[in-house]
Amino acid sequence: MEKLTKRMSAVDRRSFLTAAIALAAVPAGAQQDFPNKPIRIISPYTAGGLGDTLPRALSVVLSPRLGQRVLVENRPGASQMMGTQFVARAENDGYTLLWASTTNMAINTIAQTRLGYDPQKDFAPIGVCFTSPLYLLVNPRLPVKSVKELIAYAKAHPGKLTFASGGSGSTNHLAGELFMQQTGIRMLHVPYKGAGPAIVGVIGGEVDLMFEGAGIEHARHGQLRALAVASRQRTHGAPEVPTIAEAGVPGFDASVWFGLAAPAGTPPAVVARLASGLQEALKDPALVRSIGDAEITPSSPQAMADLVRTDTDKWRKVVVDAHIVFE
């Protein structure tokens, strides 16, 4: 043991000691009997949106897999930071979990100067659950019907096009920045106080376009035109809509993912039990019928940890290249 410890780096030793202390603090019987009481999923989102409806749909099929009630509790505020901080400081016994997302685990580390938590150090990933597509939606009066036509129009009218978002640093904001960087066009960003008002702005013609998931319903009713979906694959909800990569921008991907994470130091056996239950729950056919256009995209805890790192690097590069300064 002494020789092994000497070979470890300082970070490795800290990680090893943290895990050892966590395991010692939880009686073996408690780990074996887990779970023996209800589990809370803390959603840092307000009620009504995907950050609320998706964990509630999941809780219905996850409860029987774990043998305990799984409850969802909303703790919104400060760009998801309040709820995320709450879980980071919660008991690491597996009974308080975080509804994690692209925003609170990756983008916030770039967009927020006072985060109050470290996504890669303060949480134990359990697994990704869903991916929500962002559609490239334009006002029907804009004279374009494809991504190629949009790019051509933007290049012929540099700086004329405007794109809406739910706020500076939001996923639909950074998706627009990524689109400009990969196509070489210029557009003016118009931030709104939420995605809902932003969609209304595009429908009303105040703004030309935006990247958003919920707006696909308006496209189905002719209020918006869906040019493409920003995910790597077409969606089951709108299979007729091509991906942006298919439409002429190779490699484009600006999806929003959601998953579960526990506080750091949660015993590995507990994380494994939660991950196993999650994987089984995501196979339930009833879940597909209750999540709308979201896609079920299960992953292992390690794959989720890797995704947090790669997404953080990806969006940081977008912000740096766009010279975006967040207040």
Results as ranks from 00 to 15, higher is better:
residue 58 L to F: 04
residue 117 Y to S: 13
residue 233 Q to T: 15
residue 208 D to W: 04
residue 62 L to Y: 02
residue 259 G to I: 07
residue 230 A to L: 11
residue 159 G to V: 06
residue 213 G to F: 00
residue 33 D to F: 02
residue 53 T to N: 12
residue 95 Y to E: 08
residue 158 P to M: 14
residue 159 G to H: 09
residue 121 K to I: 15
residue 166 G to C: 01
residue 318 V to N: 01
residue 20 A to W: 10
residue 11 V to M: 08
residue 138 V to C: 03
residue 11 V to R: 14
residue 221 H to K: 14
residue 62 L to I: 02
residue 67 G to A: 08
residue 265 G to T: 09
residue 14 R to N: 01
residue 170 S to Q: 03
residue 41 I to G: 13
residue 121 K to M: 15
residue 27 P to K: 06
residue 57 A to Q: 04
residue 37 K to V: 13
residue 188 L to W: 00
residue 1 M to W: 15
residue 237 G to A: 15
residue 144 V to E: 11
residue 63 S to D: 05
residue 115 L to K: 11
residue 4 L to P: 10
residue 63 S to Q: 03
residue 6 K to G: 10
residue 115 L to E: 09
residue 304 M to G: 08
residue 154 A to G: 12
residue 13 R to W: 12
residue 158 P to T: 14
residue 235 T to V: 13
residue 275 A to F: 06
residue 290 S to W: 03
residue 129 C to G: 00
residue 47 A to N: 07
residue 31 Q to H: 01
residue 320 V to G: 02
residue 144 V to F: 12
residue 116 G to D: 09
residue 114 R to T: 12
residue 292 G to I: 06
residue 113 T to G: 06
residue 49 G to R: 04
residue 142 L to T: 12
residue 280 E to Q: 08
residue 182 Q to N: 05
residue 229 V to Q: 04
residue 41 I to V: 14
residue 187 M to V: 07
residue 124 A to C: 11
residue 303 A to M: 10
residue 197 P to D: 06
residue 131 T to C: 10
residue 125 P to S: 04
